[in-house]
Design a protein around this nucleic acid. Structure first.
Lengths: 141, 141
DNA sequence: ACATAAATGCAACTAAGTTGCAACAATTTT
DNA sequence: AAAATTGTTGCAACTTAGTTGCATTTATGT
């Protein structure tokens, strides 16, 4: 299983001890290459961990730059794996997020960069979030 | 008070009866031209209304196209007045939202339109949300 | 002013997220 | 490899957010 080595590397690189819950939750992210809601993770991990552990694990992963959050229109929190460039306390997820209204899967479009937005005088930009709603390629036809 | 007439017009135009809570909440939005969180409204309305009434009023306003929601990075729900073009069940808030990290006020930048985003083949867009984080003109200096 | 339809307040409930602490498991040290 | 240490987990209790049903009250058309 290559995926297990990947998980251990990812945790070690971020100075996190390798525990059952962390490994399992990382596995979920690595398996399906989309975003997961907190509820998804609780369900898919098979009630094997406490709610609190899931909260704390996700929080830790966000802090370490392993995953990032995605704001959605209905204000539920989504999490997705970061690419390698992200480090502790410094996310670089400047890509567009896509949410399919049919299958409600959320995908990070890594190749689509966020366009520069010209603001009126006096405004200073630090970060831009772009979320595209629509229908994904699997749900059309 | 011109603002009172404005409120009554707005409610009548949307076939809503003119009640104390609706008038008061609309007043809050008209007074400060920025976005409000649910908690703000409860505080500023001075505990004069029931929590449930605030929930239901905001919901009604969103349905009627009087206000729209703004997704934020920390996943709290913000509400802001729509411009006149919005009608029942059909929002046209295709403008950029700006959130100031200092005063945490949120402003609708009506003049800045959302740029078109080119997606990979197969993806179909229905709506694009853009939220810019930064420092507003009042907080710089 | 009255009838009717709608809005509000209350109470109770579900869901979401947080905190402190004791028990436990993963590292580190020897 | 076992002990010591540090960090992680699970539990319980709690806070906050949001929902639902129903009785009461309020707004509006006639």
């Amino acid at each position: 299983m290559v995926i297990n080595q990947q998980i251990q590397q990812l945790l070690k690189r971020n100075q996190l001890s390798i525990t059952g819950s962390r490994s399992k939750i990382l596995e979920l992210f690595l398996q399906q290459n989309g975003a997961l809601a907190h509820a998804d993770i609780e369900k898919k991990s098979g009630a094997s961990f406490d709610r609190v552990t899931v909260y704390r694990t996700l929080q830790t992963f966000v802090e370490k730059g392993i995953i990032h959050t995605i704001p959605t229109a209905d204000n539920s929190i989504l999490y997705a794996l970061c690419k390698d460039e992200c480090t502790e306390g410094h996310h670089h997820d400047h890509h567009v997020h896509f949410i399919c209204s049919k299958c409600s899967s959320t995908i990070c479009l890594e190749d689509i960069t966020v366009p520069e937005i010209k603001l009126p005088g006096g405004y200073q930009t630090t970060q831009v979030e772009v979320v595209v709603n629509g229908v994904c390629k699997d749900c059309r036809g």
